[in-house]
């Protein structure tokens, strides 16, 4: 090379190393966000799909299900917080797909052969997916308002409801980060994700109250992370018992993160 960018000295102190690690995470996050912008059709479809669910369920099943709802509750108000969670769950499988694609394409090889903070690739992925969730959830709320949904609580509660959705989606992202690191190829990652997510989402309080389910299923559904998160988000949106489902939901989120973050980091380090 005619010009030589200076030979860079390795960062000196622990504090410097930490700052560099945070920067690396931000750079990789920024790169992943760019990907979303460059593929707007993906963003659009991942927003349209849950909205379609809302419309189908609210108008097709609304009448039939209405009778099993608590008195005075509209089905669309009941449904939308559930759909937030359902959509977050399905989108979290995209974390595995995105990671698997990266691994296939070799750009991760370049990252791994460079002196960058080890977990930056993983954190950059999940952080970008979290930001995408913020965007999609707000968009869904706006569309919800068009079709008659209303938060029946205060602004703070509504914000808390959305935070529950985001925390839940973030935790699931880490599970699917692990899936993305384990399976080979984006398609395998996609199928693995759906196999895991479908039963969880349908055996939950997303669409109907769990009390309408057969006994065995009800037991499973009532402790599922999906149900407790839906219940927490729902109570924060339309009123009802908040504390218990919220605590349970946060416990699930913490437990998932505590297990899967170290698993993912270890797996990533050991790759090869």
């Amino acid at each position: 090379m005619s010009t030589q960018a200076g030979v860079v000295a390795p960062p000196a102190s622990l504090a410097r190393r930490f700052v560099k690690a945070v920067e690396d995470c931000l750079i990789v996050t920024g790169r992943n966000l760019r990907h979303f912008v460059r593929q707007p059709q993906l963003l659009i479809f991942s927003t349209i799909q849950p909205i379609m669910f809302v419309l189908l369920f609210a108008f097709v099943f609304g009448g039939a299900i209405g009778s099993s709802l608590p008195p005075g509750v509209e089905y669309v108000d009941f449904l939308l917080p559930g759909i937030f969670i359902q959509a977050a769950a399905f989108r979290s499988t995209q974390t595995a797909v995105g990671l698997a694609e990266d691994l296939d394409r070799g750009v991760i090889d370049r990252f791994r052969a460079m002196p960058i903070a080890r977990p930056a690739v993983l954190i950059g992925r999940t952080a970008a997916d979290l930001l995408r969730n913020v965007f999609v959830t707000l968009l869904m709320t706006a569309v919800g308002y068009i079709i008659g949904f209303r938060f029946r609580t205060g602004v703070l509660d509504a914000a808390a409801a959305i935070c529950v959705v985001l925390a839940f989606g973030f935790a699931l992202s880490w599970i699917f980060t692990y899936v993305g690191l384990r399976v080979r190829g984006a398609e395998a990652a996609q199928s693995a994700g759906f196999v895991a997510i479908f039963p969880l989402v349908f055996a939950s309080s997303v669409f109907v109250p769990v009390s309408t389910m057969p006994a065995g299923l009800e037991q499973f559904a009532s402790v599922s992370p999906v149900t407790v998160s839906v219940d927490a988000a729902r109570a924060l949106s339309i009123g009802g018992e908040v504390a218990e489902p919220l605590l349970q939901s946060m416990a699930w989120v913490l437990a998932i993160l505590l297990i899967f973050v170290p698993l993912c980091v270890r797996r990533y380090r050991r790759m090869g």
Binding site: A5, V8, P11, K20, E23, D24, I27, R31, R34, H35, R38, Q39, R105, G106, V107, D109, R110, F111, A113, M114, P115, I116
Partner: peptide, 29 residues
């Protein structure tokens, strides 16, 4: 080290300039 693998390890969705800037930033420039 520098590595140029058998199959190009660059980001397909970014531009050439964005790729180089990103790698440069990661190299602490």
């Amino acid at each position: 080290i520098g590595l140029t693998g058998q199959f190009a390890a660059v980001d397909e969705l970014l531009s050439g300039r964005e790729n180089l800037r990103m790698f440069g930033r990661l190299f602490r420039l």
